[in-house]
């Protein structure tokens, strides 16, 4: 049973293609992550799926309803939290929540059970204007407003952008519990570390899906082996590593470099030796399992060279 099925969706603004031929299937009750950098077309895809925009071509079904023809029915069944904080800043927490509850034909009391867990955290501030809330609280309020009518599919467009690390973690815990209540969650994020928390992922770049699968299947499909390399002078090392034979790619990753190499042509020891010879005597390397970001880099490189 699929909550979201879209087929060859395309959309362009003038001559710029924002979304190209995207097909996705999202099962009911899973957290599906749409991972990609800013400007990849995530928000456009959200707007198409939430019936805010018409695709130029392609078709889709949300909760089994046609995206274009039954858009009005779909609007009753989905919850949407846009990327930008979009509540009324001059209304209080309570007023915002009550307004959206009424808009969807319900009341806060009726759906209190659904939102209780999140709402209880902001309830002490219910008379405060939404504009005066902190980032984390704004996000909780927005989530409450999106959940207040008990939607079957929840669309969250970059919900954790601009939110501190602790609140982000809390937020993902909440998403886990929302999924347990049977709601399908479609979430986008530019943060690769959040990707691992999704049930399934789609990686998007420049409007195209470059890979889909569960986090572990994506990692498993990673074709190369990977080293985490460190040395005193990091930037010259990066340039040196990229020139080393057998190295496929090398990216800077926080305090180390992630080096993908072809195991048939070279190995960890010869890469380090090569670096030591080139003037990096303190160079060390450690074999690691690649992360989602490494997969994204690899898939995006592959996609670019194919194109």
């Amino acid at each position: 049973m699929y909550s979201i099925e879209i087929d060859n969706i395309s959309k362009s603004y003038g001559k710029t293609a924002a979304v190209r031929d995207i097909s996705l299937k999202v099962e009911t009750g899973e957290i599906f992550g749409l991972i990609g950098p800013d400007g990849a077309g995530k928000t456009t895809l959200f707007r198409i799926m939430t019936t805010l925009m018409m695709p130029d071509s392609g078709k889709g079904r949300i909760c089994g309803l046609d995206m274009v023809k039954d858009y009005f029915m779909i609007r009753k069944k989905i919850g949407y939290m846009p990327g930008k904080f979009s509540l009324y800043q001059d209304l209080s927490v309570k007023e915002n929540l009550e307004f959206f509850a009424t808009l969807f034909g319900t009341t806060v009391e009726d759906s209190y059970q659904t939102i209780k867990e999140i709402y209880s955290q902001i309830e002490p501030f219910r008379d405060r204007r939404a504009g005066k809330l902190s980032g984390g609280m704004k996000q909780k309020l927005a989530l409450c407003c999106a959940l207040v009518h008990k939607p079957s599919v929840l669309f969250l467009d970059e919900p954790t952008t601009g939110v501190d690390a602790v609140s982000r973690k809390e937020f993902w815990n909440m998403l886990g519990r929302i999924r347990e209540s049977g709601v399908t969650v479609f979430v986008s994020t530019p943060y690769m570390d959040e990707a691992a928390l999704c049930d399934r992922l789609a990686l998007i770049k420049e409007g195209s899906i470059i890979g889909t699968g569960t986090p572990s299947s994506l990692v498993k499909a990673y074709p190369h082996r990977m080293l985490s390399v460190k040395a005193g002078r990091m930037y010259p090392l990066l340039k040196k590593l990229r020139e080393t034979p057998g190295v496929i790619s090398c990216f800077s990753f926080g305090d180390s470099h992630h080096v993908a190499y072809d195991a048939t042509r070279t190995d960890s020891r010869s890469i380090v030796e090569e670096a030591v010879r080139a003037g990096f005597p303190d160079c060390t390397a450690k074999e690691i399992t690649p992360g989602i970001e490494d997969c994204f880099m690899q898939l995006s490189r592959k996609w670019t060279t194919q194109d």
Partner: peptide
């Protein structure tokens, strides 16, 4: 401008 129109539009009103 504030994006609230998006929310109004996705509501069944």
């Amino acid at each position: 401008e504030t994006g609230t129109l998006e929310l109004l539009l996705v509501s069944p009103v």
